[in-house]
């Protein structure tokens, strides 16, 4: 298959590795081999303009069994899981689920994410839940800011405006039976039921 590799500027040829397709089909629950490259997914994708591989190109890599090329793409992290592609796909493929499976694999292998802020946000969000079972927006924001190492002043105005209107609560709330939440997180980390990447 001839493809334009992201940023390479030249065509490269990929040889198919069908033996690797089964694993990602199992991890994502999607029958990726059904894709016949109609490109409707890319036509409707709201984030396509910012991706390094369009959704149909991304799926083609998966079909060829070339997964490591995808671990380093912006595409897997910029998918907003809006599922416009799923609604349009004539073969019922959930591309967001495929992107999720690749994100999880990349995190498990401790590979640096091309969209590190997106990964940092998801991790800060889950870390906020892990202790109390409910999200505390304010501490999640602070944790995210420290983790993403982005500019601390970004969105400061928005945060202050929200705070002034009482939209950011100071004190967290939690569920009463926190041990149940902790047990579910522990099970996720043990890799029960399709392992986690926490």
């Amino acid at each position: 298959m001839a493809v334009d590799l992201p940023g390479a500027g030249a065509q490269a040829y990929l040889s198919p590795r069908p033996e690797r397709v089964a694993a990602i089909e199992r991890a994502s629950g999607q029958r990726i081999s059904l894709c016949y490259q109609c490109q409707k997914c890319s036509g409707g994708c709201p984030l396509g303009f910012a991706m390094d591989l369009l959704p149909h190109q991304f799926i083609r890599y998966v079909q060829m069994g070339h997964l490591e090329e995808l671990w380093h793409t912006r595409t897997i992290w910029l998918c907003a899981a809006c599922r416009t592609c799923v609604a349009r796909c004539p073969n019922g493929i959930d591309l967001a689920a495929v992107a999720d499976a690749l994100k999880q694999e990349a995190v498990r292998r401790r590979l640096p994410a091309k969209e590190s802020a997106v990964q940092a946000f998801h991790q800060a969000f889950l870390a906020s839940l892990q202790n109390r079972g409910r999200l505390h927006e304010l501490s999640m924001l602070i944790r995210y800011k420290l983790k993403s190492r982005g500019p601390l002043t970004q969105d400061l105005d928005l945060g202050l405006a929200m705070f002034r209107r009482g939209k950011l609560k100071l004190l967290p709330e939690g569920v009463r039976r926190q041990k149940e939440i902790r047990a579910l997180f522990a099970r996720a980390q043990q890799g029960g039921n399709g392992s986690g990447a926490l």
Binding site: H122, L129, G194
Partner: peptide, 22 residues
């Protein structure tokens, strides 16, 4: 009573288990 967070997009992004367990 005692509801918990659904995990939102971060749950399914990072953990197929929590995506459904929460």
């Amino acid at each position: 009573a005692d509801w918990n967070c659904c995990g939102a997009s971060s749950g399914h992004a990072l953990s197929p288990y929590l995506a459904h367990a929460l």
